[in-house]
């Protein structure tokens, strides 16, 4: 199969055929280089992961009191242990997301975007590969430390299926989050400063995505709204799958994630084409 880049001329003037393997190799190399880059500062990496300890301690105190006040062993089908493991997974995803919009914004402001646009790769895929390299390490660290803490607090984690299903869904979560980040980041080409959009997106994730509270605890009407928005499928989907893994739930989470990926990814693609055409680089 020939990629879109096919048709480039070699130095000798022959048409260069780009194999799909060579094209995939580029993004693999970007992913690998970002991994190496993140490993350059192991203490910093560990420090970032320690944040989850604080969050879990706060959540534990908060929810222990809540469950005690309600006087029931489970709320909306979730025990205290389920809730804590849910929140651990939700926080692990949230804290390992690579904030691409900020990277975009910085690159537009300082002009370094020029280097990425004149290389033979797709700008969006480059960032995804690089973001994935960053997220994977952070996610691993968060999961390791977060699990140890929550295990000590409420006992062992859910079964192995939960880890596998949630792990698979988290990759699509990053992809979906990446599309939102890219959308916000692409607006930097037009408005340059994207802090406001980023802030709004973060708050949507916190409240309607299920980072602070499992969506199951919401009143029915708010639950319906949340589950029909994409934010739930970035955080709530994988975290809920983690504590209650089933093939039916996995299928539902995947379906929702794919639908939203098609919608948001499509918008990103269209906007990217338009933005590049009217690109203005600082320092021109």
């Amino acid at each position: 199969m020939r990629s879109k880049e096919a048709g480039a001329l070699t130095g000798e003037g022959r048409v260069r055929e780009h194999s799909s393997a060579a094209v995939a190799g580029k993004y693999w190399a970007v992913f690998r280089t970002q991994l190496l880059n993140s490993l350059a500062y192991p203490i910093d990496l560990l420090g970032r992961s320690l944040l989850i300890v604080l969050f879990m301690w706060i959540f534990m105190n908060l929810w222990r009191v809540t469950y005690g006040a309600v006087g029931a062993s489970s709320i909306a089908g979730l025990t205290l242990a389920d809730t804590m493991w849910y929140l651990m997974m939700a926080e692990a995803v949230m804290l390992s997301k690579h904030d691409l919009s900020e990277t975009f914004s910085e690159q537009v402001k300082d002009g370094s975007v020029a280097y990425l646009l004149n290389k033979p790769f797709n700008f969006i895929l480059y960032h995804f590969a690089s973001g994935l390299g960053d997220s994977l390490l952070a996610f691993g660290g968060n999961l390791l430390i977060g699990s140890a803490v929550v295990w000590l607090m409420v006992g062992p984690p859910p079964g192995i299926a939960g880890w596998i299903f949630a792990g698979a869904a988290v990759v699509l979560s990053w992809l979906l989050d990446f599309c939102f980040s890219a959308l916000i980041g692409l607006s930097a080409f037009v408005v340059e400063e994207t802090n406001a959009f980023r802030w709004i997106y973060q708050k949507f994730l916190l409240l309607l995505g299920g980072v602070l509270i499992p969506l199951d605890f919401f009143p029915a009407w708010l639950q319906t709204i949340s589950l029909n928005l994409p934010f739930a499928w970035i955080i709530y989907g994988p975290a809920r799958l983690f504590v209650e893994p089933s093939l039916a739930r996995l299928g539902h989470v995947f379906l929702q994630q794919c639908i939203w990926l098609a919608v948001v990814g499509g918008i990103v693609w269209v906007i990217y084409r338009r933005v590049v055409a009217r690109l203005v680089i600082n320092g021109g």
Partner: peptide, 22 residues
């Protein structure tokens, strides 16, 4: 742009392209 990228090189003196920490 993409096809041309294989045949030209560029250095923008004030914008590093090497990964800073590696």
């Amino acid at each position: 742009r993409q096809a041309l990228a294989f045949q030209i090189g560029s250095v923008f003196g004030q914008r590093p392209q090497l990964w800073y920490h590696l």
